[in-house]
């Protein structure tokens, strides 16, 4: 495998892993598949530009220097997710998983329409961190600087999240609640705190995906969260619903497989890359319907 291909695979897989984690975190504590996650990503993208229906995008927050912009967008993503939980999912706390899922669809549609009203429906060109497109020589490969930054960021985020889950009180409570929510509550764990925490982390991860998508594609599009949400959802299913490491592994795997297929398939088969990819997903699920890493002892909510 060429070095170039390795970087492609890692960067794409890393982003899929981050998106999948955003879904798995919430599923873990609430048994909710949050289909609004894609719109969380889209909202974080549009938070970069000034609201207007003009074809030309004017950077608002996006013009801030990165050390300010990145934490700010992460906070906006986290805040949006926490707000959505308080307004939409908290009143549904005792609803069935299916009702919760429908609620998340409705939330996604509402957010998408909000973006359409504020920004119009046409994709806009956004130039964020254009200088990161410059290639850097790594061994034999010439890799865009952005790709290296993405890979490094993914590693840092995964490590930080793992440490947070292992070492912090909130992390402990989230892991306990993910296994048996009622038991955790009987030990005094506050459900609102755990659920808000999961949404905040998930929203911040959505914002990370948003920044990477904009920087890579140079486009802001109301629909842009949908595609990656689908891949991320598939990754959480393949990884085993509720397993965080499973979501990461499957996200990386799908991204890497996608990059490998893109490079390895003969030119005439390349348009069918996704068919090969999802064919592989179906094969995995045929042999392991519970996913690759079904979580230990996970009990249903209630």
């Amino acid at each position: 495998m060429s070095l170039q291909l390795l970087f492609d695979a890692l960067a794409l897989g890393g982003i899929y892993a981050i998106a999948a984690l955003g879904i798995a975190l919430i599923f873990g504590v609430m048994r909710l598949v949050n289909f609004a996650h894609g719109q969380f990503i889209a909202c974080a993208v549009f938070a970069l530009i000034v609201p207007s229906t003009d074809a030309l995008a004017v950077l608002g927050l996006g013009a801030l220097p990165a050390p300010v912009l990145v934490p700010l967008i992460l906070m906006i993503g986290a805040g949006l997710a926490v707000l959505a939980e308080a307004l939409v999912f908290r009143p549904m706390r005792n609803a069935s998983p299916v009702a919760l899922m429908v609620g998340s669809f409705a939330l996604g549609v509402a957010l998408q329409n909000l973006l359409l009203v504020l920004y119009g429906g046409r994709p806009k060109a956004v130039s964020l961190w254009a200088e990161l497109g410059q290639p850097v020589q790594v061994g034999s490969a010439s890799v865009p600087l952005l790709q290296l930054i993405v890979i490094a960021a993914v590693v840092v985020i995964l490590a930080a999240l793992a440490i947070m889950l292992r070492k912090s009180r909130l992390g402990l409570e989230m892991r306990a609640a993910a296994e048996d929510f009622t038991m955790a509550r009987m030990l005094g764990v506050r459900s609102n705190r755990v659920i808000s925490g999961a949404f905040a982390l998930s929203g911040a991860l959505a914002a990370v995906v948003a920044l990477v998508l904009v920087a890579q594609t140079g486009v802001a599009d109301v629909r842009m969260g949908g595609q990656i949400m689908l891949v991320a959802f598939i990754a959480t299913v393949v990884g085993g619903m509720g397993s965080l490491s499973g979501a990461v592994a499957a996200g990386l795997g799908i991204g890497a497989a996608s990059a490998l297929l893109q490079a390895g398939l003969p030119a005439e088969a390349r348009p069918f890359r996704d068919a090969f990819l999802y064919g592989g997903v179906i094969l995995v699920l045929l042999f392991r319907p519970q996913g690759l890493f079904a979580p230990v002892g996970a009990k249903p909510r209630v």
Binding site: L172, E179, D180, T182, M183, A184, R185, M186, V296, K299
Partner: peptide, 30 residues
């Protein structure tokens, strides 16, 4: 449940319901 636990009532439930994926010490810390 959480408010009741906070007032000093604790439960050892049927089937034990320990957190299998956590360490023994983590179970005691929750």
């Amino acid at each position: 449940a959480e408010a009741i636990a906070r007032r000093g009532l604790s439960m050892v439930p049927e089937g034990r319901r320990i957190f299998a994926g956590l360490t023994v010490l983590e179970n005691l810390t929750v």
